[in-house]
Every structure is written in structure tokens, then in C-alpha cells.
């Protein structure tokens, strides 16, 4: 097993404005490893510290205690220079919630070029990367368009292209689908899946939509700043009571099977299955 791409060791963080007390920690004693090529979904109720975790990995925030390693390098080290920070951001890209507030330029392709331009990539190479990135997110035909004319899902895909063009090893999606309509959400989720499967980019998806988390290889649930559950979607969702305690929902199919089990006394093995399997399981157990 190779070195994990991202590793958090007993990381704690509290926002400066909050005062003392154990509860004020946004992230508390969190240890987590994310391997190269993985697709990890981080679930959690509002204020569970999931967005803070993302910002810690990307060095927008610095932890109060604990260590964070990105690609084997300690990024919590005291004498991290500006160049080191730069290196981390080259490896770990981030896509935020509001698509409007992360697009810088007035033309789509110029915006995608923004990242590589900052990295000092030569002009011809930028052109190539921009075309490739737009191709990956299926936005090539909008290259010359103005971003404000695009739909939410399209804007978000432009933002993703802007991150891909920097050739990161890992992309963190910080509730990137939260502000989108169902169609936009689907477009963005398909893009994320393709990035992970075809481009082999490690994906950390922060979300509170269960049906998105189900698509991941691994689900991490956070509760008030701490790691609460960690496992495959099937493992995590087979314990609906625990998720309800964390203030989360479970996928509807799981909820249905759980209720059948408790109210009718059936013994359907809980987990995440596709539509037909769920129907089959219910049929066989009733």
C-alpha cells in the first residue's frame, strides 16, 4: 500500500471568534486518510466541520493542533513558505458551493485558463490544458461564452474545468451541488464520477445529499467535528439509527427496508443496492 495522498492526524481546529469550551471546536481530534484514486464522500449535518476539514486540507485554515500531510509532506509545519503553500494548492484543487463567486473572468475559456496562468504554465500548454479540461466537463462549445449567461450546472462545470486545468491529484468539492437545480446537480455528479473513474483524480465530495454519497467508494460521516462513521456506502447506510442520530437522512431505499424490518419483523440485509435488487430483496423477504 502506497502512502496516503492526504492524511490527517489528530487534527483540531476552532474558529478564533468562538470562545473556549470543548464544544467550540469546529474539528476535534480528527484522523483521516484518503488514498490516491479514491472517491470519498464526507457527510455531516450543518456545523459538523466538514467544510472546515476541506479548508484545512487546502491550507486556507491552519489547524490548532495535529498534523496534516498532503502527498507525504507535512503542511502544518511551522516554516511553510509561500511556495510550499502554492505546491499544496497545485496538488489539491477545490470547487466551492456558489458557482458565481469562483468565476473570475468574463469569458469561459479565460476563466479556465486562470489557474494554469497562475502556475506559470507556458501559453501553448495552457491552451491545450484549457481545451482538454473543457472537453472533460463537456463544455467545449461554450468556450467563448460569457459565464453569467450559463446555467448553474454549467457554471459549476466551468469551475470544475478551471480546477482540472491545474492538473491536481485531488479535487475537493465543498457542497458544489448544494445551490443547483436537480438537472444541474446530475450534470455535475456525472462529471465528478467521470473525473474519478476516467481521469483517475482523487475526489473528496462534501455533501449532505445521500443519493450523492451513495455513489462514492467510501463514506465518512462527521458529527460535531469528530469522525463518526467511516466505511463503504453499504456499511454506513446499514446503520440508519446512527445516521439519524447525527442528524442525517438515509437513502429512501434503506429507510424503506429498515421500516419493513422493524415494523413487519422481516430480516432484509440493509445496504445500498440498485433499484431492482431492492425490489428483489423485499419480494424474497416478505
Amino acid at each position: 500500500m502506497s502512502l496516503p495522498l492526504i492524511k490527517l492526524e489528530n487534527v483540531s481546529f476552532s474558529y478564533p471568534e468562538s470562545e473556549g469550551g470543548d464544544n467550540s471546536f469546529a474539528v476535534k481530534n480528527l484522523s483521516l486518510e484518503i488514498n490516491e484514486g479514491e472517491f470519498v464522500a464526507i457527510l455531516g449535518h450543518n456545523g459538523s466541520g466538514k467544510s472546515t476539514t476541506a479548508k484545512l486540507i487546502n491550507m486556507i485554515l491552519a489547524p490548532n493542533s495535529g498534523k496534516i500531510f498532503v502527498d507525504g509532506k507535512d503542511i502544518t509545519h511551522k516554516d511553510m513558505s509561500e511556495d510550499d503553500v502554492f505546491e499544496v494548492r497545485k496538488k489539491v484543487g477545490m470547487v466551492f458551493q456558489n458557482p458565481d463567486n469562483q468565476i473570475v473572468a468574463t469569458v469561459v475559456e479565460e476563466d479556465v485558463a486562470f489557474g494554469p496562468e497562475n502556475l506559470g504554465v507556458p501559453s501553448d500548454e495552457i491552451r491545450k490544458r484549457v481545451d482538454e479540461a473543457l472537453e472533460i466537463v463537456n463544455m467545449s462549445e461554450y468556450a467563448r461564452h460569457a459565464p453569467h449567461r450559463l446555467s448553474g450546472g454549467q457554471k459549476q462545470r466551468v469551475a470544475i474545468a478551471g480546477t482540472i486545468a491545474m492538473k491536481p491529484r485531488c479535487i475537493i468539492f465543498d457542497e458544489s451541488t448544494a445551490m443547483l437545480d436537480p438537472i444541474g446537480r446530475k450534470e455535475v455528479m456525472n462529471t465528478i464520477l467521470r473525473l474519478n473513474k476516467e481521469e483517475k483524480i482523487t475526489v473528496v465530495l462534501i455533501t449532505h445529499y445521500m443519493n450523492e454519497a451513495v455513489l462514492a467508494d467510501r463514506v465518512v460521516v462527521m458529527k460535531s467535528g469528530e469522525l463518526y462513521l467511516d466505511g463503504t456506502p453499504s456499511q454506513v447506510f446499514s446503520e440508519p439509527e446512527k445516521l439519524w442520530q447525527a442528524g442525517l437522512e438515509v437513502p429512501q431505499s434503506v429507510e424503506l427496508m429498515h421500516r419493513l424490518n422493524t415494523e413487519l419483523g422481516t430480516k432484509i440485509p440493509l445496504g445500498v443496492y440498485d433499484f431492482d435488487t431492492v425490489a428483489e430483496l423485499i419480494k424474497n423477504n416478505i
Binding site: 486556507i60 494548492r89 484543487g93 486562470f114 497562475n118
Partner: peptide
């Protein structure tokens, strides 16, 4: 937010 996003993009 834009400033954070710009920083993230190097």
C-alpha cells in the same frame, strides 16, 4: 468567497 477561490487556484 472569490478571494478564497482565487487563492485556491494559485
Amino acid at each position: 468567497e472569490l478571494a478564497t477561490a482565487m487563492e485556491c487556484r494559485g
